[in-house]
Amino acid sequence: MSTLLEKRKSKIFNFHGPIAAPVTQFDSNGNLDTSKVFEYLQHLVKIGTKGLYLSGTTGEGLSLSIDEKFQLIDAWRKALDRLPAEDQPLTIVHASSTVVGDIVKYIKRAEELNFDCVALLPPLYYRPTTKELMVDYYKQILNLAAPDMPFLYYNNYTTSPLNFEMEDFIELALDKIPQLCAIKWSHYNLHQFSNLQIRFGTRIKICPGMNEILLSTVVFGCDAPILSTLSIPEFANWFKSLDQAVKRGDLVQARRDQEAITLETIKLRKVGYLTGIKAELNRQLNSLGIYFGVPRSPVYIKL
């Protein structure tokens, strides 16, 4: 492992704090609009965000062309560079696509722009039949695109189940992929989550990605959730309160915070999760002159 990769991985592993998955802003015609990225970033920093997870599920990365993805992270890089160095959040760029060549191009651009980490889902359609094939898939992409770029494995419940045991895959991946340093756990399976945390928690950062199981994951010591709702001030405040309550042993307050998070998440899911998040942000941040638009088809549900 190179010294540079080791240093970058250490930054991810030792990171603590909430990581927001920003939504991507579109204008009223559905075109990418990066004109207010800095204002959005200022809002996120103000409400306590310590990290960013760009162009993921919430950021509609899979609905963006490769050129749009370049425009998006270019805009975020320019916005980040306007902040003092001590205020700049940790940055993770989600790069999944069905086109491997685009994944490589996007990771290369992310490294050129000095983002901290790259995230990838498993292949979305043609699924590897063995853990060895999936390890080879990631290894070839990362070595070709950015050998010194830390890698976060994105486990999303919509891409499960795999054709092999998750724990066996992670064990092999840690042995064969030096860039692997973190997992985004967007799954309701707490049994498997606890197994992973117990087996690999001293070797890899596990970042919870589901609102509804947040308390359980924080109790396990996971202190860097990646959540789509952390752009909304109330959710950011509930997480901070929950995290602090767990640390001081106040599980009554922690349960209250979890209940508030869960109930509001249910409300968002009833109208369409991403649609609801964008609608709430449009309402709350309108005074800052920020408009997020609506999600691109086929996600958008007319309200």
Rank of each mutant, 00 (worst) to 15 (best):
F292K: 00
I12H: 08
D116L: 05
K7W: 09
Y126M: 13
P233V: 09
W185I: 04
L152P: 00
G272I: 03
R296I: 01
A254P: 05
V93D: 08
I183L: 14
D102Y: 09
L230Y: 13
L268Q: 03
Q42K: 10
R283L: 08
D33Q: 04
S287G: 02
F220E: 13
N155I: 15
Q284D: 05
S97K: 07
N211H: 04
D257N: 14
L180M: 13
L152S: 08
F26W: 12
S10H: 11
L44C: 14
D175I: 01
Q244Y: 01
T202K: 12
K46D: 12
V135R: 09
W185N: 01
V135E: 08
A95F: 02
F38I: 05
G209W: 03
T98C: 07
L90S: 05
S297Y: 10
A79I: 05
D175L: 03
A95D: 00
G17N: 03
L52E: 10
S55H: 07
D74L: 05
D257S: 14
R283A: 11
E39M: 05
A85S: 13
C117V: 14
A224E: 03
G272P: 12
P128C: 14
G201P: 01
V99N: 15
I66V: 14
I204C: 01
N29P: 00
N143I: 01
I73D: 01
Y138V: 06
D27W: 01
